[in-house]
Amino acid sequence: MDNEKLSLPQYDIPDDVQNAVAITTLDRLYNWGRRSSVWPLMFGLACCAIEMIAAQAARYDMARFGMEVMRPTPRQADLMLVSGTVTKKMVPSIVRLWNQMPEPKYCVAMGACASGGGPFKEGYNVVAGIDKLIPVDVYIPGCPPTPQALIAGLIKLQQKIDKQSLRKVHWYRKGPDVMEIPVPILGPDLIDPRRNAEIKSAAAALATKESA
């Protein structure tokens, strides 16, 4: 929501950005170029993937937005459309694909399952939302979102791209690149390496609770 506030007219423009006309014009050009050629990864998980294909087909024709080029390889893709239920068995592959995508990259959680687990949230093999592992830019509710709803969501993504600035985007910053997301491990249940300590202490607490 922060991004939306930033573009409100009453938002104070910081001093260092004032008079930066060149940058804003350049930003506009830069963003226009990027927003008009968002190439999605050819990557379908479940039911929503069929609606994604339908959105590519003649009736909805995502080519009108420059999004018709579905790349089967993550190296050439800008957008990961997580279209369907994210299962624990699949999520290591998804994180790997995400890590292989070059910056700037965006992630759209299409449908209830990818946003927050959806109707299958209670299942033992389901990750309750891809945002537990990958930063999500746009959430599209619906089960499944109709192709028109998907396009509406992608327009929201374009609006988000429009608000980005060359000065602030992290992929031109100096220093180490954005951290790769550690790939989860399939253990007795899904292990997110970032949460190892937490899991260990909770499992230990479980044992003391049991013995008490």
Partner: peptide
């Protein structure tokens, strides 16, 4: 809404027509 499966049962079985399935699909958010 991240669990809802849009099945329409709530609207179908509501005895007071108090819950209705919407037509508005432009509800994507950040």
């Amino acid at each position: 809404m991240d669990i809802c499966m849009n099945c329409g049962f709530c609207a179908e079985y509501c005895p007071f027509d108090a819950i209705i399935m919407d037509h508005d699909f432009d509800i994507a958010s950040y």
